[in-house]
Design a protein around this nucleic acid. Structure first.
Lengths: 297, 297
DNA sequence: TGGCGTTCATAGGCTCAGGCTATCGTGACG
DNA sequence: CGTCACGATAGCCTGAGCCTATGAACGCCA
């Protein structure tokens, strides 16, 4: 019998993921018999069963599970070879899949796109917006090249570099503009509007306000823009990151105030798979993003 | 263009190693045009040159060097998948390529072979004898599954487990049998017969005798057997490991004496690639070897 | 219990990737 | 300047791998 090929591993990895020959075949863009035969051949090469063909469902054997893990690793490394070649051709060109969290994307991306277009003409930026958890998962699966999120990220396989640090600002109805800026403790007594679950900015805001106190009655919105509009309508107050202020505060009858020290802040950074061959290129991209961010201010 | 295959990587790795299309092709058991075409295709897929076709010799580009390193890694991992399957089938079966240093092999292997044959009927032991440096290189290149050498080994990619500790014994002409056992310092005044360069036992013997003193006039032999025969001929004295004594001392008119404490000793152990899927099986093999060694005593 | 649907395996046929031999182009070297 | 060494190219051939069609096994439900 012949040797193992990457094709075997790709098909098997798909089967491991879907637990179903037909769907795995579809994911690989081949017919079910094609995938079936290749899996069978892989089992013949290894001399052991990888899957238990149950009537309604396919389950991996222990060996199958072990193999799936290693197969993923090998496929990942093989796919990285393409990036290795790209990285060796001077400044980065071609598609760059960049994830950005929603509380950063609308405020930072325009400047980033503009600056990158000027500084990296051959680059084809493909931004994607999602919450941190999603972005990190996509990164790990190599469906993204890099992501811009709030640091720190506690993920073993990733490298990160900070891009900027920004304060959280208080947004309240314009009628309150002349009142003294409330302390964190005082904030706790007000109706605070927050983003939905999953947004890191929500957690950071809660951490600041609720430090030492129980979480209070709040309301949720799906974007900073929504929150500010609701504040303008007198529903309550909210916090927004500094970079959102120029855009959002202009669009509603609200007043923006800097909080008293110690001001809450967040660090925005760029992360990528530690093992990507594009690391050096991404560091350069991070430099350009940093530049774009400070020029924008 | 199509995707990268393991075949591409195998051919390229061979080319990187040989720096010559013809010889690389030969190593891969294909014709030179076949390999040429595949290399060209790999370059097309990556969109960059991997080799500079010089007139008399082929040199890798920087990218080529980087790729070769990664290719080796990927091929290694792919080859490990076979072992992964073997390891999942209960007790180890099939070929086991075991390297052994020359100062251990003749004394330990007979017992090991006998015991392994009884305890692991399906196992096909393929012993190979070479000095430590060679064995470790072969291990790293995965041309050996495990090796029995003197510990410690300072090699990052390897795991080790001790098998036994044994003393060094003094071998001198039978006429000297009644003399007091010389100290390490006194040994320095005698003509000491040693193995050739490369044998770890030589270095250990020197380390013991020459501790604190300059190395002295010595003579070299290519095996412990030779050394003992020379001692029997009255040429000088030598040290041998304990396990060699029963065999070697019987074959010449020599007397074997235990040195005064602190006796020099060496630790014999088994090593393997840290990442081999056979690790657990090899640990069991080590247990059996340990058993064989102590039963033999 | 028998018909039906779902799912994986098998069969048969086709196409092109990848192999070989033969030959060419080029630079080094005597 | 002829020759040699070496890699590239051309042309052909075989089989790996794909597809469609169909079989076989099993669960489900009437």
């Amino acid at each position: 019998m012949n040797a193992i090929t990457l094709r075997h591993l790709r098909y098997f990895e798909a089967l491991a993921q879907h637990g179903h020959f037909g769907r795995a075949a579809e994911a690989c863009a081949v017919s079910q018999p094609t995938l079936s035969v290749q899996i069978k051949e892989l089992e013949a090469i290894l001399g052991a069963a990888l899957v238990e063909r149950g009537a309604r469902r396919v389950r991996l054997t222990d060996l199958g599970e072990a193999l799936a893990a290693r197969a993923r690793d090998i496929l990942q490394r093989a796919d990285d070879l393409g990036d290795l070649a790209r990285a060796s051709c001077g400044p980065l060109t071609g598609p760059l899949r960049l994830g950005v969290i929603p509380t950063v994307a609308p405020y930072l991306l325009p400047a980033v796109i503009k600056t990158l277009a000027a500084r990296r003409p051959g680059l084809d930026l493909r931004p994607r917006e999602a919450v941190t958890r999603t972005l990190l998962d996509e990164l790990a699966a190599a469906r993204l090249d890099a992501a811009i999120v709030a640091l720190p990220v506690a993920s073993p396989g990733l490298s990160a570099t900070p891009l900027l640090t920004e304060a959280f600002l208080l947004v309240r109805p314009v009628a309150d503009a002349d009142r003294p800026v409330p302390s964190a403790a005082a904030l706790r007594a007000m109706r605070l509007l927050l983003l939905e679950e999953g947004h890191c900015f929500r957690d950071q805001a809660i951490a600041f306000c609720a430090a030492g106190g129980a979480p209070r009655e709040m309301m949720e919105g799906s974007s900073l823009s929504t929150l500010v509009q609701m504040v303008g309508a007198g529903v309550g107050v909210t916090l927004i990151p500094e970079m959102a202020a120029p855009v959002e505060a202009r669009a509603a009858p609200v007043a923006v105030a800097r909080l008293a020290p110690p001001q809450p802040t967040r660090v925005i950074g760029m992360v990528w798979r530690r093992t990507t061959p594009l690391a050096e290129q991404l560091r350069q991209i991070a430099d350009i993003v940093r530049e774009a961010a400070s020029a924008r201010a």
